[in-house]
Design a protein around this nucleic acid. Structure first.
Lengths: 336, 336
DNA sequence: TTGAAAGCGCTAACAT
DNA sequence: ATGTTAGCGCTTTCAA
């Protein structure tokens, strides 16, 4: 029941009548050391189950070998997949993951960034809620690389980022709708001060314009990516004097909320109103209707973000910034 | 573009003509210090945006103030919710979260545990794949508390754990099926060497026995909690000479796989075969049919696990082990 | 009230 | 090939 003192290099050194540095060399493989003693040391380490103290090593090396990840909501399968991707790369490269959930709260986000700064993370993968300028500047000053995902900041050129071509995704989705014969099309957008929200709206706008279809303000509502907002906005849209025949909804949660409202109003998808969405893939294959959707390649976003970070951390020379824009992946559905 | 040297206590000390220890005291609030200098120091800290080096502090304090979480699959919404719960408690109590995904791989799990040992985590929340005895012993030896979730080890009494009453959940689910008039009932179990898998099977057994309904071996298959195994096992069960009229499936992914197979075989739920499941709640409200399911209170499991851990870490006196067993939450559906 | 100094466990430059 | 030593940034005892 008593706490067993952890074995330190010093203990091994004492036991083997060697110096601490020799033990250290035996472990790291760096520096000259005779085969004899190396074997002897490694044997002793095994049976003592010595565990290196990585906190001490981090302090000495000025490198904690850990990556921070901050997402707005880990229960969103998009972010869960991003993390999974980043984790697998990190594991491979010997980095550990410090995780934080910001709950879409800019204050929590800033807190998490501060915590990670103090923990001396080597780099940060950030799905930011919004404008968190000052804290980000601290990372820049300390030369800790940050890669933005999902949402990219205004001044994206001075950062790394991995995102999806949201404009194209929305444009393509809209075009498909139009080609199916829909003309009365509305949209529940994301927050327009976030790049993902804004770009999707703009892609929609441009596709409509290209086909000479005017936008109808009363069919367009700005949501906040939450389920409740999907419910509310869809209700408002359906209660307009002449409701649209199709609505594009800019993320998964808002789509779930909207679908619920539609059912509650006794209407059906797509007969009364067609739906198209983003990031609404259905791993359960139980969805009915299945939702036509443009999806971000989530796992890939995670792996790429981690790779960019680690690449920058291990680069010998300064690297210019990488703004990776991945292709959205379309999955068809019977929601339209 | 150059790396700005981080501000250290020493820098502040130099700037203010004070000693390092005085600065430290001003920050921590511990130890005597005059109001005058404290204010002076705090002011200087603000405008220098000093960031404490928590790695150094951790080394000195022999306490990294971080919790490890290892889950088998972060994209499983159950685990994502557990993490979310644990995270919120951790944030509140000033702990950070080291996350690892084991991918249901016992080797990765052991690796992650080793990494966390080296990172000197204060405690571990572990959703273990299987028998990982030796590594767990290391945590015990070093007196690092481990709380098991989802799956509990054989020798559960010597650990903390937070789990769900799986036996009861399965028993109740089976009883409901029987009360609905089903007699021909099969089961796709989880791995029977995992407590959650085994207990659900046993709950099923006991309910069937109570109602005097014999078990039919050909209707019972051991799965591995993965989607593919759900497909395969359901196919085998439906291809028996006389298939059952209802099947209980022991987790969400296997249910998705099974439902897919059922559709592919041109059969329908529940007309041809009724389904009941575990942890299959439907946040999308798009599922059709909706699946009757016994669910673990995932967020609560996360918060409780973190609380137990932190409670033990801050306790003045040795605590006896906590084996918290939470009630499953039933959600009805039209899958039966 | 403040300062000096030791030390957490490790690595690496330098000395032997 | 191995040992000695300094020091990463912090907290804390002890001394002034």
């Amino acid at each position: 029941m008593n706490k067993q003192q952890p074995v330190r290099l010093r203990d091994l050194a004492f036991e083997l009548n060697l110096s601490v540095s020799t033990i250290s060399r035996a472990i790291s493989g760096k520096g000259r050391i005779s085969d004899k003693t190396r074997v002897r040391v490694l044997k002793a380490i095994k049976k003592s189950n010595y565990t290196p103290n990585d906190v001490a090593r981090s302090l000495r090396m000025q490198n904690a070998m850990s990556l921070g990840i901050i997402v707005t909501d880990i229960t969103n399968s998009f972010f869960a997949s991003v993390i999974k991707g980043a984790q697998s790369v990190s594991r491979e490269m010997g980095y550990s993951i410090l995780l934080s959930n910001s709950d879409e709260n800019i204050l929590y986000e800033a807190e998490a960034m501060q915590l990670m700064l103090e923990k001396q993370i080597s780099g940060l993968i950030l799905a930011s809620v919004g404008n968190n300028g000052p804290k980000i500047t601290q990372f820049q000053n300390l030369n800790i690389p940050v890669v933005f995902i999902d949402n990219t900041p205004e001044s994206v050129q001075s950062f790394d980022s991995v995102s999806t071509d949201n404009h194209k995704a929305a444009h393509s989705l809209t075009t498909r709708l139009i080609e199916k014969g829909y003309k009365h099309i509305g949209m529940i957008t994301g927050p327009l001060n976030q790049s993902s929200g804004r770009q999707r709206y703009e892609g929609f706008q441009s596709a409509m314009k290209e086909h000479g279809i005017p936008l109808r303000d009363e069919w367009i509502r700005e949501g906040n990516f939450q389920m409740e907002s999907g419910r509310l906005m869809m209700r408002q849209i359906l209660e307009t004097p002449i409701p649209p025949k199709a609505v594009i909804i800019c993320n998964n949660y808002m789509t779930y909320g909207a679908a619920k409202t539609i059912k509650e109003m006794g209407k059906s998808i797509p007969a009364d109103v067609a739906l198209a969405s983003f990031d609404t893939d259905d791993p359960t294959s139980l969805s009915s209707p299945t939702i036509a959707s443009m999806n971000q390649p989530a796992v890939q976003i995670g792996t790429k973000a981690a790779e960019i970070l680690i690449n920058r951390l291990t680069a010998k020379h300064p690297l210019s910034h990488t703004n990776l824009v991945l292709e959205p992946v379309f999955t068809d559905g019977d929601s339209w």
